[in-house]
């Protein structure tokens, strides 16, 4: 379960350094950042431990048909080509430029953003339905 302990060790290290830093410096900003790092990696550790579904002895088995590691196979169909990421990225970039040039860019960015998001959701739903169909067929 190296995948999970990796986060646990990082969290332990961050709390250790954070505590040490506070003791030697009494400096608040750095302590908050280090403890925040520890809390975030600790949260990752807790969530991953809850999400593990495989026993450790299943790991490293070259004869298995499942992907290695404790999280199992959630892979679905490979998505087909899609303009949604480009449209969404363009929308976000244009909206961001409103920060420099004013709110009209929000309107310009909203169009590709909405179109891209809608296409993304449609495609995802289609693939989900296909996966469920395949699962039922199996």
């Amino acid at each position: 379960m190296e995948e999970i302990t990796y986060f646990g060790r990082l969290s332990f290290f961050a709390f250790l350094v954070g505590a040490g830093y506070w003791l030697v410096s009494n400096e608040a900003v750095g302590t908050v950042m280090l403890i925040g790092f520890g809390l975030a990696t600790g949260a990752g550790f807790t969530l991953l431990r809850g999400g593990a579904r495989h026993e450790p002895d299943a790991v490293g088995d070259a004869e298995s048909t499942e992907p290695d590691g404790p999280f199992g196979d959630e892979s679905g169909p490979l998505p087909t080509r899609s303009a949604a990421p480009l449209a969404l990225g363009l929308g976000v970039a244009l909206i961001g430029m409103a920060g420099a040039f004013g709110p009209w860019f929000v309107l310009a960015g909203a169009v590709p953003l909405v179109l891209g998001a809608a296409d993304w959701l449609r495609s995802a739903n289609r693939e989900l339905a296909l996966r469920e169909h395949l699962d039922e067929a199996e």
């Binding site: 959630e74 892979s75 490979l78 998505p79 899609s82 949604a84 990421p85 480009l86 969404l88 990225g89 363009l90 976000v92 970039a93 961001g96 430029m97 993304w120 495609s123 995802a124």
Partner: peptide, 22 residues
């Protein structure tokens, strides 16, 4: 066979490219 989230992967690329151009 691919990344876990292929469309998100493409979005990451476009955000990077537009960021540089901006």
């Amino acid at each position: 066979a691919d990344m876990a989230f292929p469309r998100l992967n493409a979005l990451s690329y476009w955000l990077f490219l537009f960021g540089g151009l901006i």
